[in-house]
């Protein structure tokens, strides 16, 4: 690790036993992003969370999963995501006619129907951003298992930080449920595998949205 240009070194590189564990393992300073209060970080016990003394924001939380566990989770999510995108989400029936759609069918249709802006937002928040997030997280975790920083680590971590609020798969699942109920008044509605895959994806995303990305900086060092 290169020496920081401006004083104050970060936490010491972790020893090999701690490498790959993603909760804080050595004392260091933690600054609350919400109010600028400085705290002394400490190792967290299972189930423990560290909160800001001034504004009560969550500063850190104990993570049960190590890098291996999280990598497995991300790979599972990636597979489920592909299934969710290949299979139709819902099929409607009217008399003898049937109509079904996938996520991409939905995006293309919005584009063709003159709502290009919505198509772009949907493609970004439901496809490109989640996909990139999983690929980048997987890449970084693959190296983090051995306490190493993946090639491109810094820019990937920065991108992940900025992508964080812009993935909306869980909103899409709720949207599909609302659409099904709305359509039920007029059509025969049949949920397809895509919607179940999305449901599972929603759970997986909730689990790994709790991952503290910053801790990856503390448990890895340049190869």
């Amino acid at each position: 690790m290169s020496t920081p240009e401006h004083g104050l070194a970060p936490a010491d590189p972790t020893d090999s036993a701690a490498a790959g564990r993603l909760h804080a393992s050595s004392p260091r300073l933690v600054i609350c992003e919400h109010c600028d209060t400085v705290h002394r970080g400490h190792a967290l016990a299972p189930g423990e969370a560290m909160r800001c003394v001034r504004c009560d924001a969550l500063l850190a939380r104990y993570h049960v999963l190590n890098a291996d566990g999280m990598l497995a989770l991300v790979l599972t999510a990636l597979i489920v995501f592909l299934i969710a995108n290949v299979w139709p989400v819902v099929t409607l029936g009217l008399g003898s006619q049937q109509s079904s759609t996938t996520l991409w069918g939905t995006i293309v249709m919005m584009w063709e129907q003159g709502a290009q802006l919505v198509a772009v937002v949907a493609a970004a928040t439901l496809f490109f951003f989640p996909l990139n997030k999983m690929l980048m997280l997987g890449w970084v975790l693959f190296f983090a298992r051995e306490g190493r920083r993946a090639p491109g680590f810094a820019s990937i971590m920065k991108t992940l930080y900025y992508l964080q609020p812009w993935t909306m798969s869980e909103v899409f699942v709720l949207g599909a449920i609302v659409s099904i109920v709305k359509a039920r008044a007029y059509f025969d509605v049949q949920p397809d595998p895509g919607i179940w895959a999305y449901g599972v994806l929603m759970l997986l995303i909730t689990v790994f949205s709790g991952i503290d990305l910053r801790s990856l900086w503390d448990v890895t060092e340049d190869a």
Partner: peptide, 16 residues
């Protein structure tokens, strides 16, 4: 964003 996705899904689905 919920309602936006509902409109998008219904647009893609209701094509009779």
């Amino acid at each position: 964003m919920l309602d936006v996705f509902v409109v998008a899904l219904l647009t893609a689905l209701v094509r009779f």
